[in-house]
Design a binder for these strands. Structure first.
Lengths: 179, 179
DNA sequence: CATTGACATGTCAGAAGTTACATGTCATTT
DNA sequence: AAATGACATGTAACTTCTGACATGTCAATG
């Protein structure tokens, strides 16, 4: 059992999916990252497959069955459930996530006013698109509890961002770029 | 001139600081990451010094002067300004940032209701702390334009998160964990 | 004059994440 | 029977990020 110093959030995400939805293959898990987990954590199959192998080596998951076409069905072990529970209860996320959007917002005042305006308008459109996407997702699940708090958080986030962009655009227009 | 395929946001952040605040040393820039840029992008000196060396090799910045105690004062070049401008005007941030908070929110329903409640309460406290911090920062700058949109975004974000946590806690209490 | 602490720059090993490459299975359609 | 496309798993090279180690300067204090 490796003793990790990193944040190992990918591990946690995988354990969470296996715990919530039952046994699954790397392929299944990759699909879930593309759908339900897409607005929460991103990972491609090239990161997922090696991680699953390490997790199996660490005893957090096991290959219970091998299905068709070489499918390996992973199941979470008691050790895995333990690790997941410990992280959820004991880990307090503190680091501010790196955000390219915030970086662009930070630096936008360096541009000529018309350019800054164009950047903010583009951002607003991106946020609006994202909001629509999440609201569509929300309609589909409605009352399903698993993931509902995160979806609500995502929707509020997108709404807030649209409002911020709208107000920033207005501010920029009002000040005529005199910052 | 290396041709980068990555997102190179650290580069952009450094170019932005050099463009906005004028020539600075690696040490100065590290301090700025700790203060003004802390809620936007994080980087330690062990990442900053090597990046500055690469950027100088690529002609985006130059060492104009060497100050006391081996201080190297970097200045942005026209090529550097170009690269910064191109990124701000032409790059549309699309990837959803990885958020440990959102991951924890997503997985919280796997916990026993009382445990989930404790997790949400802890998150709420973190957000409130963060909000206070940013509001203090806001008082200090008030009208300084550079970074003001990003600061506003951060404050709205924190406020939204406090509201989300409050409502989620209420929802969890109301449903008695029956998700 | 010795100590302390802020100033100042770097390297290194390892973890995490991205993109492209590589391989092969199975069911459906042409 | 061949081609297509979803299914399925992996590796390799590279970039990015973190934490620890390493070194030395200079000013103020005791």
């Amino acid at each position: 059992m490796r003793s990790y110093s990193g944040r190992m959030s990918l591990r946690i995400a995988l354990l969470g999916l296996l715990s919530a939805s039952g046994p699954a293959s790397g392929y299944d898990l990759t699909k879930k990252f593309e759908t339900s987990l897409a607005h929460v954590w991103q990972a491609g199959h090239s990161q997922i497959y090696p991680e699953l192998a390490k997790m199996a080596a660490d005893g957090l998951i096991t290959v219970e069955a091998e299905g068709a076409r070489g499918r390996k069905i992973y199941t979470i072990t008691p050790d895995g459930r333990d690790a997941l529970h410990r992280w959820l209860v004991g880990h307090s996320p503190s680091a501010v996530p790196r955000s390219e959007i915030a970086l662009q917002a930070f630096l936008a005042p360096l541009l000529e006013p018309e350019e800054a305006l164009a950047v903010l308008e583009r951002m607003k459109a991106t946020f609006e698109e994202r909001l629509r996407e999440l609201e569509r997702l929300g309609d589909l699940r409605s009352k399903k509890g698993y993931g509902k708090y995160a979806l609500d958080l995502g929707i509020r986030q997108a709404r807030m961002a649209v409002g911020w962009a709208t107000d920033s655009i207005a501010d920029l227009k009002a000040s005529g770029g005199a910052v």
